[in-house]
């Protein structure tokens, strides 16, 4: 570059925590291989991932519910390039899965010969779980 410039960065590091509701979600996933949500009885909404409050009525939620590992693909995309615009050797599919019996769901990788919206899928869990969203390997039919 011909004009005066410097390279630099904004150095800062962070610790991100799962929070009160998130802690229980990830412990259940890690220790028991289960998905859990919280329910607002007044609004009849089951939040997955769980939240400690209802965003509609602002009640504090303490009703915990086991929810299935199964759900339905609501939207998906097949990714062909990485974040720097390099072509991927193998495209992969990421989608949003609405967990059955809940108003929520998870964004995750979906592996199937052909992915379509409306398709039923189930979370495939890793054997060796650490308490992370990646304890779910992917969703598959």
């Amino acid at each position: 570059m011909s004009f005066t410039h410097w390279h630099g960065d904004m150095e800062a590091q962070y610790i991100y925590t799962a929070g009160i509701a998130g802690e229980r979600f990830f412990r259940e996933l890690k220790d028991n291989g289960k998905l859990v949500g919280t329910r607002c009885p007044k609004c009849d909404i089951t939040y997955v991932p769980p939240r400690m409050y209802c965003e509609k009525c602002f009640a504090e939620l303490d009703e915990w519910k086991d929810v299935p590992l199964e759900g339905e693909v609501v939207a998906h995309t097949e990714v062909h390039v990485d974040i720097e615009d390099n072509k991927l050797a193998e495209p992969f599919v990421i989608g949003f899965v609405r967990i059955d019996g809940t108003q929520g769901g998870l964004v995750h990788y979906i592996k199937a010969p052909e992915v379509r919206n409306g398709m039923k899928v189930k979370a495939v869990l890793k054997d060796d779980r650490v308490g992370s969203i990646l304890d779910i390997e992917h969703f598959a039919p």
């Binding site: 962070y14 991100y16 925590t17 799962a18 929070g19 998130g22 990830f26 991932p49 609501v74 939207a75 998906h76 995309t77 990714v79 974040i83 990421i94 989608g95 949003f96 998870l106 964004v107 995750h108 990788y109 919206n117 409306g118 992370s132 969203i133 990646l134």
Partner: peptide, 25 residues
């Protein structure tokens, strides 16, 4: 969301692709 989403290394285009996909569906 640093816990739920970032481990998947998402980028914005994916998210909009899903919204477009849903709208088309």
């Amino acid at each position: 969301d640093p816990i739920l989403d970032r481990p998947l290394k998402p980028n914005l285009v994916w998210i909009f692709a899903m919204e477009m996909n849903r709208y088309m569906t």
